[in-house]
């Protein structure tokens, strides 16, 4: 029996030691996901807490098919979405400000020197509605159709939000790398 199966069985039996073990092993990765979807640390902490409670309470539904980490990540993302839906009203395509897209997309070299912490900071600066769509599409790999159901928006809104998110991110990344280069030159 794999170790994770052993831990899951222990958690199902109410063994606190195994519950702690599960938390210690996976909380750091899941907290990073929470930060990615939230605007501040307090909100991220709430998502992590609610997400883990759901994970423990639904462990018996995990069929040991596919990645356990992926299963936990999906629960965490869904928890973040629930929080988002409860706090934000629906928004329409015409809510979105028309932002002029840059003429050329920077290549990978322009991004050199950016670390995960920087990326997290940049992504968290996005407006919530853009951040949600960008995370679901670009990081999690959902389609616009799926996102429209999950976030309760139209597919068109999902596409527009993604487009705006990319524009903002490219600008921020550009300015970030510029700042970093300047700091390095100094």
């Amino acid at each position: 029996m794999s170790e994770i199966k052993k831990i899951i069985k222990g958690c199902l039996a109410g063994n606190r030691r195994d519950q702690e073990l599960l938390y210690r092993r996976h909380s750091a990765k899941l907290y990073a996901v929470c930060l990615q979807y939230s605007g501040n640390e307090e909100e991220a902490r709430d998502i992590l807490q609610e997400g883990f409670i759901k994970i423990f309470e639904n462990l018996d539904h995990y069929k040991h098919e596919g990645s356990f980490e992926g299963w936990m990540r999906r629960i965490t993302v869904n928890t973040a979405l629930e929080k988002f839906r409860s706090r934000h009203n629906l928004y329409r395509v015409d809510d979105i400000d028309m932002i002029q897209e840059p003429d050329a997309e920077p290549d990978n070299q322009d991004y050199a020197g950016l670390e995960a912490n920087d990326l997290l900071e940049i992504i968290r600066e996005l407006p919530t509605k853009y951040r949600m769509v960008f995370n679901l599409y670009a990081i999690e790999g959902y389609s616009h159709k799926e996102i429209s159901t999950m976030v309760n928006i139209s597919e068109g809104t999902s596409k527009s939000n993604l487009s705006r998110a990319r524009v903002i991110l490219q600008r921020r990344v550009g300015s970030y790398t510029g700042i970093k280069k300047n700091v390095a030159n100094e």
């Binding site: 902490r45 960008f134 991110l169």
Partner: peptide, 22 residues
Amino acid sequence: NIDLLFRNGLKDFEVLPPPGVC
């Protein structure tokens, strides 16, 4: 490109949660 940057950059990224959450 920007999608890949964030997807790869945040892959396996870990941040320790604050104490007391557990």
